[in-house]
């Protein structure tokens, strides 16, 4: 009975964690969109703070899960796998927060002509993060099919890479040698890392399922 209760507790904490990751990604997408529409720092400060808040909340829940899992609720192997998975997952909202911080600290200028493509990149990266959360949740509902859900992350990661390459090429084709171009390029790279990190989570999920394949 004790094991069942702890299992339910872990499962509900993980659902809460996934929800906070999704919340962070939604806030991130909204904040970038708002910044593209109006680059006034004061106007976007609140939405940037929202990203940070959601990321911190995800961090707190992850730590709670770690403590819960060390109270002898799982096989040592599963405990290690799930902790590793959560730590890898945590890098996705962290990256979203880094991108927002970059905008704030480095005064990133988003050229109007590239904003729609940038928003498309942000959308793809966020969808990769949603696919990651979906695959992770599958582990806790129908684990043998979690590997199938990972395929979607790979597709979105490839799409993100394609948009990144195309966008950087367009930015530099304008022969504008200003520092803001370099900063914008770095920002694009920072954003696309969200999907790269989601892909790393997908790889971990594949390994977790493969280790338990019969």
């Amino acid at each position: 009975m004790l094991f069942v209760n702890k299992q339910k507790e872990i499962q509900s904490q993980i659902s809460e964690y996934c929800a906070s990751v999704l919340e962070c990604m939604d806030s991130f997408q909204e904040a970038v969109k708002q910044y593209c529409d109006n680059s006034d720092r004061k106007a976007v400060k609140a939405s940037f703070a929202q990203v940070h808040k959601a990321e911190s909340k995800a961090d707190d829940i992850r730590r709670e899960i770690e403590v819960l899992m060390y109270s002898k609720s799982l096989f040592p192997e599963s405990r290690g796998d799930i902790m590793g998975l959560l730590e890898t997952m945590d890098r996705v909202p962290n990256q979203a927060e880094s991108a927002i911080r970059m905008i704030w600290n480095q005064y990133v200028t988003i050229p109007e002509q590239h904003s729609s493509e940038l928003l498309n990149l942000v959308d793809v990266c966020c969808r990769a993060a949603y696919a990651m959360v979906d695959a992770a949740e599958k582990l806790f509902s129908d684990f043998t099919n979690a590997a199938v859900a990972v395929g979607k992350i790979d597709e979105l990661e490839s799409e993100g890479d394609r948009i990144e390459a195309s966008l950087i090429e367009k930015v530099f084709s304008e022969k504008n040698d200003s520092i803001s171009t370099i900063v914008f390029r770095d920002f694009i790279k920072c954003v696309v890392q969200i999907s790269d990190r989601a892909e790393n989570v997908g790889d971990r999920i594949r390994i977790i399922v493969a280790k338990r394949s019969i």
Partner: peptide, 22 residues
């Protein structure tokens, strides 16, 4: 028999642990 059950029953990784442990 066990493999067929684990492969085709939609169970959580935690439920799988619980089943094997018990």
């Amino acid at each position: 028999l066990l493999a067929a059950f684990i492969r085709y029953a939609p169970i959580s990784i935690l439920t799988r642990d619980k089943m094997l442990w018990s």
